[in-house]
Simulated scan of single mutants.
Amino acid sequence: MSGQGADWLKGMVTVHIRGGRAEELVNRALAGGLQLSTIRWTSSGLLEFELSVSDFFRLRPYLKETGCRVHVTKRKGLPFLLVKAERRKLFAGGIVLFFAIIFMLSSLVWSIEVQGNIKLTEDQIRLAAKEEGLYPLQWSFRLTDADVLSKQLVRKLPGSTWVGVEKKGTKVIIQVVESTIPKQSALNTPRHLVAAADAVVTEIIAEAGRPVVRKNMRVKKDQILISGTIGGEEYSRTVVAKGNVRGLVWYEFEIASPLVQQVKVYTGEKKTKWFAVIGSRALQVSGYGKDEYKASEAILSEQKISWRNWTLPIGRLKETIMETRLEERTLTEEEAKNAGILQAKADVLIKAGSDAVIRDEIVLHEKADNGKVYMKVLFEVEQSIVKEMPLVQMQGE
């Protein structure tokens, strides 16, 4: 152990010598075997040196012989730390208890996360894990070794090829890899692809079957686009027609857009509530009382205690209640018109499909009356226009 470490264990004091024969005191103490260090004269004319606690008590005879008085100015080391701890038993006990609780909480499994499962339900996996001793609020040291637990879970979970168990802090992650079974292709009957609506063809791609329309051709609803019959009259056969046909379709919308709209705004008034969070439970600690706001919106913000990769299920939750009110906003006719058309476009795309594109819009009629703007709008949309028609149905007709 280094000299400084030994001095800290023994305890060291710094003293000032007053009156008497200070130089003689130092000489006699050193001759008597006392270890004095950092001997110097202070700016106030006092002799200062440092010595151990045990040597401090052996210094008394030399003080009497030389007529000096001693005054302790500094104390450091383990003995003095123990004295302070003795005086503050409750404080020291609280610190010990705090770390003991943190250790106990960090030794528990607080949550289990399941990943990778598709066919197997999360409840099935959690039940199998519980049968093997893995469940929330279980002690970490009581868990089976991860490799052994993985093999046991594979045996208990039919359809799984590998199960990984990983502990991260107070959370355990169960990663499941399920066995893949080749999909059996559906047994499709021969069919045509026909038009789902009146349209003008913009694109046609035939993967199987015989295309009977071409680009820029106008087609009627239920007209055959890609035929499932191929070959001549004597050597014809039927197939499952496959492909994609896109076309321009027209949608007519009647729109009534109000000139006065209600908008939600924040008033700036707010109330804050704090909650202590332990696991999935929250205990309110401040912000009691009923909310006096007629209309409000709550914003939640949660903070958990974490250290490095460890996240404890202990923290605090802040709930901010923001007062809101509805304000009327008056639009110009042009603003109301744009708002109505924008909503109509959204409705068109929902109806036409996710791959649809609006190519053009034409306002056929427009007027303002009774606080609203009324419009009749025609949208030109490019979309997929195919639907299936079994050949059996065609033969039956």
Score class of each variant (00 low, 15 high):
residue 276 A to G: 13
residue 247 G to P: 11
residue 266 Y to N: 15
residue 264 K to I: 15
residue 183 K to S: 11
residue 285 V to C: 09
residue 242 K to S: 09
residue 214 R to W: 14
residue 235 Y to L: 11
residue 211 P to Y: 03
residue 216 N to D: 06
residue 185 S to K: 05
residue 287 G to R: 08
residue 213 V to F: 08
residue 220 K to M: 02
residue 177 V to P: 04
residue 219 V to C: 08
residue 218 R to W: 08
residue 284 Q to D: 10
residue 265 V to G: 14
residue 250 W to H: 10
residue 243 G to H: 07
residue 263 V to E: 15
residue 271 K to R: 15
residue 240 V to R: 03
residue 235 Y to E: 14
residue 275 F to D: 09
residue 243 G to T: 07
residue 178 E to I: 02
residue 272 T to Y: 12
residue 198 D to E: 01
residue 223 Q to A: 13
residue 197 A to R: 06
residue 221 K to H: 13
residue 263 V to I: 15
residue 276 A to S: 13
residue 243 G to C: 14
residue 181 I to P: 04
residue 258 P to A: 09
residue 190 P to L: 05
residue 202 T to E: 07
residue 180 T to E: 14
residue 265 V to P: 06
residue 244 N to V: 11
residue 219 V to I: 09
residue 255 I to H: 11
residue 188 N to H: 10
residue 217 M to N: 07
residue 262 Q to Y: 06
residue 194 V to L: 00
residue 227 S to C: 03
residue 186 A to M: 02
residue 239 V to Q: 00
residue 252 E to T: 15
residue 212 V to D: 05
residue 263 V to C: 02
residue 244 N to C: 07
residue 251 Y to T: 11
residue 281 R to I: 00
residue 251 Y to Q: 09
residue 209 G to L: 06
residue 180 T to Q: 09
residue 245 V to N: 05
residue 222 D to H: 14
residue 238 T to Y: 04
residue 245 V to E: 03
residue 217 M to P: 11
residue 208 A to E: 06
residue 202 T to M: 04
residue 252 E to K: 14
residue 217 M to C: 03
residue 209 G to C: 03
residue 282 A to H: 03
residue 269 E to I: 02
residue 233 E to P: 06
residue 267 T to W: 05
residue 266 Y to D: 14
residue 238 T to P: 01
residue 196 A to D: 06
residue 270 K to E: 13
residue 240 V to D: 13
residue 287 G to I: 05
residue 190 P to K: 00
residue 268 G to P: 12
residue 237 R to A: 05
residue 243 G to Y: 02
residue 212 V to G: 04
residue 197 A to C: 09
residue 216 N to Y: 08
residue 254 E to M: 04
residue 198 D to Y: 08
residue 269 E to T: 11
residue 280 S to M: 02
residue 204 I to G: 12
residue 223 Q to V: 01
residue 219 V to P: 01
residue 200 V to F: 05
residue 225 L to T: 09
residue 282 A to R: 10
residue 266 Y to Q: 12
residue 265 V to R: 13
residue 284 Q to G: 05
residue 258 P to R: 01
residue 203 E to H: 14
residue 218 R to N: 10
residue 194 V to W: 04
residue 214 R to H: 00
residue 179 S to E: 13
residue 283 L to K: 02
residue 192 H to K: 01
residue 181 I to V: 12
residue 205 I to T: 15
residue 280 S to R: 12
residue 265 V to D: 13
residue 189 T to I: 05
residue 250 W to S: 10
residue 208 A to F: 12
residue 273 K to M: 10
residue 188 N to I: 08
residue 228 G to L: 00
residue 202 T to Q: 14
residue 253 F to L: 14
residue 256 A to D: 12
residue 190 P to M: 09
residue 223 Q to K: 11
residue 249 V to D: 11
residue 273 K to G: 01
residue 191 R to N: 07
residue 226 I to K: 00
residue 262 Q to N: 11
residue 232 G to D: 13
residue 195 A to M: 02
residue 284 Q to A: 07
residue 248 L to T: 12
residue 194 V to N: 00
residue 209 G to I: 06
residue 208 A to Y: 02
residue 218 R to A: 14
residue 259 L to M: 13
residue 231 G to P: 06
residue 270 K to F: 07
residue 277 V to N: 08
residue 232 G to Y: 12
residue 262 Q to K: 12
residue 218 R to S: 15
residue 233 E to Y: 05
residue 272 T to K: 15
residue 261 Q to H: 05
